[in-house]
């Protein structure tokens, strides 16, 4: 039965269900149990924000607290995956991935290809992404495009608890390496989630709102900003269709193209930096494959090309917001491509 739970609880539940279903699923990371080997409560932390709390009590040593060495344990998880386990490595902040690039880019992503299809690497690397947490420039990046760039790695970034559970279960069952990106400012967001197990297939975008005037494509936290913008636009009689990509690699081009062919206008919203981003990727694909359908230039709403500021005021300005998304949509509706304040007829 469905009940309202948070995205944090949904991720915990997905791990719990898959560990129960499949004994080859193991979880490893820094302080994911917390307190192992030291006096005091055995299961005190459950990860830096408590996502894995309670799992040690149920699954014991299949959760491993690792040393503070991402290079080592991400490599270990990838190696274990090639040898028959289904490890889920938690990497706290995606910003720390820098020290594991060889393991991910050159090893995990390449095994299936370089061993003639004989090697599989069913590993999931979970990490927190995104700004707005007052965690400064080294703990706040949206590095989804970096991983999307690499063939052989799948990239997932859910916007809500229902999707997080189904996509994480799919990630664990998938036979390829998956980078599972969890926006830390969505952890507390609740929605209806079935208690049972379910898997959401990769490459299936979700359409959150129907509209015939403009398509807004996004993923993760900014999906909610896009929905706010769509509500504001609706008050001016502009109906936006909002597409939540859910997975960035593979990506659901068909849903994007279908929508743009109906609306003729596209706004892509991405919390990543603008250069070589999901926004520029989608804009380029639509420009190349649906140019004839476009009635206006594609608009991108992204973070600026600067590190995430630590100043709370600046950090809030850094993340794409609903007014800037609505404004971009209005630009696509303006015959001159400039930005009138209102296009209400």
């Amino acid at each position: 039965m469905a009940r309202k739970i948070s995205m944090k609880q949904a991720i915990n539940e997905a791990l719990d269900l898959e560990m129960t279903r499949d004994p080859s699923v193991v979880v490893m990371g820094e302080d994911i149990v917390g307190g192992t080997g030291s006096p005091g409560e055995d299961d005190a932390w459950g990860g830096v924000l408590g996502v894995t709390k309670g799992l040690y009590a149920k699954h014991g040593d299949r959760l491993m607290d690792t040393p503070l060495s991402e290079s080592a344990y991400v490599g270990a998880a990838i190696g274990a995956a090639t040898c028959g386990l289904r490890p889920v490595a938690e990497l706290m902040f995606i910003d720390f991935m820098g020290v594991c690039f060889d393991q991910i880019f050159n090893q995990a992503a390449k095994f299936r290809y370089m061993f003639g299809g004989k090697a599989e690497t069913p590993v999931v690397i979970r990490a927190m992404v995104g700004a707005g947490f007052r965690a400064a420039a080294q703990h706040s990046q949206m590095l989804t495009p970096v991983f999307t760039h690499i063939p052989g790695v799948k990239v997932v970034c859910p916007s809500n608890a229902y999707d997080a559970k189904g996509l994480l279960i799919q990630s664990i069952r998938d036979n390829d390496p998956v980078i599972f990106c969890e926006h830390k400012n969505l952890y507390g967001l609740e929605c209806d989630v079935p208690a049972e197990s379910y898997a959401i297939p990769f490459g299936e975008a979700n359409v959150l709102r129907d509209g015939g005037d403009v398509t807004i494509v996004s993923y993760g936290l900014t999906v909610h900003r896009a929905m706010e913008a769509a509500e504001a636009l609706a008050r001016d009689r502009v109906e936006a269709e909002v597409v939540d990509l859910r997975t960035l690699s593979p990506i659901d081009w068909d849903t994007i193209i279908d929508s743009v062919e109906r609306t003729g206008r596209l706004v892509v919203v991405d919390e990543a930096h603008p250069r070589c981003s999901i926004a520029s990727d989608v804009a380029a694909f639509v420009g190349q494959n649906a140019f004839g359908a476009l009635k206006a230039g594609v608009q991108m709403v992204t973070a600026p090309h600067v590190p995430v500021p630590f100043s709370p005021v600046l950090e809030d300005l850094y993340i794409p917001n609903a007014p800037s998304i609505a404004e971009a949509a209005r630009r696509t509706l303006s015959p001159t491509g400039t930005s009138p304040r209102s296009i209400a007829a």
Partner: peptide, 16 residues
């Protein structure tokens, strides 16, 4: 509707 389709999909995705 989109919601009706989504509700059926949510059912179809359940294990079993």
């Amino acid at each position: 509707s989109r919601q009706m389709t989504e509700d059926v999909l949510k059912y179809k995705r359940l294990d079993g």
